[in-house]
Amino acid sequence: MIYSLLIAPFAEFDFMRRALVGVLALGLGAGPVGVLMMLRRMSLAGDAMAHAILPGAAVGFLAAGLNLFAMTIGGLVAGFAVALGAGAVARATQMKEDAALAAFYLVSLALGVLLVSLRGSNVDLLHVLFGTVLALDDATLLLITAISSFTLVVLAVLWRPLVLESVDPGFLRSVSRAGAPTHLAFLALVVLNLVGGFHALGTLLAVGMMMLPAASARFWTRELTVMVGCSVLIACASGVIGLLVSYHWGVPSGPAIILVAGGAYALSVLFGPVGGLLPRLAPRRHLEA
């Protein structure tokens, strides 16, 4: 029973095994990135970035069809252009980063729609929008795992300035010039992970793998390292459970994965010991002074 429910789908079908590796790799990379995004108050920046990547991927798709290389390059170029452009404007002028990002991604999105319509073809962009986690080929799987490994290495190296730039940017500025490059490197990681995610989940849902587990983890711990671990765990678990749900009920896998993550978020909001709803509604007796 448990075997047929949990193990058999992966044991019997090659595409499910590939999907499993894909979502686990995505969770490993997106978990920590999402926590840092949330703590840096950039939760919505990920969404903006996903919109910015969409036109790039679409243009790659128009130029070369369902070609991993073309779509990846397109997404990366559009994502980096928007991230670096917005980051540069925010650092060089009085404009805050969120406003700059909004301006850049809207332009990118409009440009993408324009380019697609110029081609005059009514292309099926569902693949770009919602991904195909059940059809990951070797090359895509390699790309996703490479991006996750690279992400973890870069995070390990840049952890100290990344954390310090989030807690006390003024202090980091006063002791080091690493602040701006670190921030740009982090934005690049976000773009990379979104591009990795869109092959499996589509550009828009890829953000879900990043932000929902991070937002859930916030409710379970006050410790940063534990939070990152929680986030990775929730992301990977959502991936696995989402795949199983999709398999047993025959629903699209991308949305299933994100909905499971959404369920984890709802549970965390309700029962999370750190500022969750229930612990607040039923407070325990206060402590001795």
Binding site: L39, S166, V167, G170, F171, L224, M227
Partner: peptide, 11 residues
Amino acid sequence: AAEIDRTFPIE
């Protein structure tokens, strides 16, 4: 006014 994010989970 140090730009410290007091909500950040750091000890």
